[in-house]
Design a binder for these strands. Structure first.
Lengths: 298, 298
DNA sequence: TATGATATGCTCAAAGAGAGCATAATTAGG
DNA sequence: CCTAATTATGCTCTCTTTGAGCATATCATA
């Protein structure tokens, strides 16, 4: 069988949360995600990326997970005689290291419609208005487009679903409301990025938002010890939602994900909060994968 | 920045369920997964793969999802002057088309310990015994290994978790109990495959087992109309578990995934069963992504 | 000392999940 | 025709999980 040739490139979505803001590591003043060649010397993709990120950013990467591999013909950087295959990864960086340094930009700069922590963001009105225009522009697909818009943006009675970040970006792309899709910069919603990097970022956000619900990955973004409110704020930042405080504590405690360090923190302006640390042993203790199938016991 | 060169290859895990057995499309009498070059002519990876599979197998592929991209140095087929990047996909094929044709092999031929529909499979005793030996062989990591084995194989009180198929295979690989890891063929558990194809198959199985719980992908494996028991048996085949019949029906019905066709089927040996069909509109109706976060409404 | 703020404990109702009993509608066998 | 075996389908009951909110505790500060 014949073999195709291609150029291989790694792209990283590095995430940190500082000051209750989810951030992503960027280059070119926030216009692109860090990327680099896949070097032949490395044993695996994963180890190659890890080394390379460490060098370039001086931040140790905790959790690292493959996101997606792109090789579309219409991607930029197409070099004659071959194609570029981009393998993207999601990496989580501890809060401490990833602090206010340059290069870290807030997620919601790129996706202002994704942050619902202060209630429904105002941009959503504009977004929906323009989606309606787009839907109406094609009489044949009008209904389908309206339903799709309502569904992805939570107007169909189902409510806002934070996991649909990628679908939302893709819809806006299709509707020509982001400049990466070729519309003018003046028509662009959110901040644009180089090539398809904003799409890759959306992929990472969606993946992470889904993952924090069934795997204890948030702790990769936290310092060694933390208060429960700090943990809550971190998750809220990622999900773009606010959580019910008491129920959040109940959830964390009943899952036995954390244990008290014994210390307290009193910088909070109120009653001092107990400090907790992640129980690393849970990683080899439990599955945490909630089956929803109605099993029979026999 | 420099660019790495590589050979690109696509590998497909094509799944069908016939006669209550989950099957995978293979070549070389069941020793390898179908694979092929990534041709330059295609617009996207996905479309390229779809075309290629259609040609090679004459089966239309319904659902298609990227699994994982491998580029490890120690993979076979390494050609001097470059590396092979393998991009693997999971594809679902309708039962009808994928029927008893040659090339389709049952999953559990390769992973006999994964099928718990007839109760705990007998091989598990041997598997665990040999894992214990392996664990005891290294006094330093003994405890950790025992805990890991107990956990992945459900002996730690948590019970069997069907989603851990990949972790189980990886553990057996690490323990040298599969011939792909270099142990002799006589020591191998299950049926071996070429290179790392069995690992890729395990990845596909794990992904599919997890996915059927929150996305209505099973229907890609079903004929147009089917009875609820048929649907249940299909899911049971994939999960390697038996389900509680009445509760299964309740679940399906309350989610409004299906609607009656009006017809019935009486080949069942008992009371005739109503026929149902998948409500394709649910795909654009609901999210089906159950958030487990304790939201606050304000 | 009163006030504001956050931390933390607890309750109550509603929704969901697990298990199993009961009844219905067929076919196969006397 | 009658009976047993077999599968379909309806329904109940309990236990757990989730959603919401009240109440109390413990700090800093004006």
């Amino acid at each position: 069988m014949t073999i195709g040739f291609a150029h291989a490139e790694l792209i990283a979505v590095l995430v940190a949360v500082t000051g209750d803001e989810p951030r992503v590591m960027t280059i070119r003043s926030g216009n692109a995600l860090p990327s680099g060649p896949f070097e032949m010397g490395h044993r695996t993709l994963q180890s190659g990326l890890r080394e390379w990120v460490q060098e370039q950013t001086e931040h140790p990467v905790g959790y690292l997970e493959q996101l997606y591999t792109f090789a579309d013909r219409d991607r930029n950087n197409d070099i004659p005689g071959g194609r570029t295959i981009s393998i993207s990864y999601l990496g989580l960086v501890n809060e401490q290291s990833g602090a206010g340094r340059p290069g870290w930009h807030g997620w919601y700069e790129y996706f202002p419609w994704e942050d619902h922590r202060q209630g429904r963001p105002a941009v959503l009105d504009e977004v929906m208005a323009r989606l309606r225009n787009w839907a109406d522009a094609d009489p044949a697909r009008r209904d389908h487009r309206h339903r799709r818009a309502d569904f992805t943006f939570g107007l169909d009675g189902g409510g806002w679903n934070e996991d649909l970040a990628l679908q939302r970006y893709e819809l806006l792309y299709e509707a020509g409301l982001v400049s990466e899709a070729g519309c003018g910069a003046e028509a662009n919603l959110g901040r644009a990025m180089f090539a398809d990097h904003r799409r890759i970022l959306a992929t990472g956000i969606a993946r992470l938002r889904a993952k924090i619900k069934y795997r204890p990955v948030v702790f990769e973004l936290m310092p060694e010890s933390f208060t429960l409110l700090r943990l809550q704020r971190t998750i809220e930042a990622l999900a773009g939602l606010t959580l019910h405080k008491q129920n959040f504590r109940r959830l964390i405690e009943q899952q036995e994900l954390v244990e008290e360090t014994g210390g307290t923190e009193s910088e909070t302006g109120g009653r001092p909060a107990k400090l907790f640390r992640f129980r690393h042993t849970v990683l080899e203790e439990r599955a945490l994968a909630g089956t929803k199938l109605p099993l029979s016991r026999n």
